[in-house]
């Protein structure tokens, strides 16, 4: 079984890898590019821990093959901060204690960032539904929703 050579961009960096066509983008990010910030919680698109954006579109990297990444722009949790400057969402998640174990956090941050880019003023209900595909078992979502809503408010004030 021959492997495919894939050239793509992750967090702005040009990268290449070889993959079996059965390997998912998640497998490739983690095992070939050492970007282990993106997590596998289910492998069936039900938990959102593997959330990334592809061409600006929020997807589960476990539901996309590595070969499909050819020529695409991919953003992961590792690309959210700008150098040593945390993204406002990252700061708020720490400030609000919006994480406990932290394994869902990368996916939730990627998803929440995508929300705020599309909708700078989401209601609580919109935020909850947007994040419904990101399971968190620790927090009951309360502090997560508050952190996202407050980040949105802060970003609106700043702009």
């Amino acid at each position: 079984m021959s492997k495919f050579h894939v050239s793509t961009q992750v967090n702005g960096d040009a990268v290449e890898f070889l993959c079996d066509p059965r390997e998912t983008l998640l497998d490739c990010l983690r095992d070939k590019l050492n970007l282990t910030g993106t997590k596998e919680g289910c492998g069936t698109g039900d938990c959102g821990a593997c959330s990334v954006t592809v061409e600006g579109r929020l997807v589960c990297s476990c539901l996309m093959l590595g070969v499909e990444a050819e020529g695409k722009q991919i953003e992961t949790v590792e690309g959210i901060a700008d150098g040593d400057m945390l993204h406002p969402l990252q700061k708020k998640f720490i400030e609000y204690a919006a994480l406990q174990c932290g394994v869902c956090t990368p996916g939730i941050l990627v998803a929440a960032k995508s929300l705020l880019e599309k909708n700078p003023n989401p209601t609580e209900e919109e935020t909850r539904y947007w994040l419904a595909g990101n399971l968190c078992r620790c927090t009951g979502y309360d502090k997560i929703i508050r952190a996202v809503m407050d980040t949105a408010a802060e970003l609106r004030e700043a702009s």
């Binding site: 698109g45 039900d46 929020l58 997807v59 996309m64 929300l115 994040l131």
Partner: peptide, 9 residues
């Protein structure tokens, strides 16, 4: 159908 993530695909 599915989550925001699933809607993306």
């Amino acid at each position: 159908i599915g989550s925001t993530q699933v809607q993306g695909r």
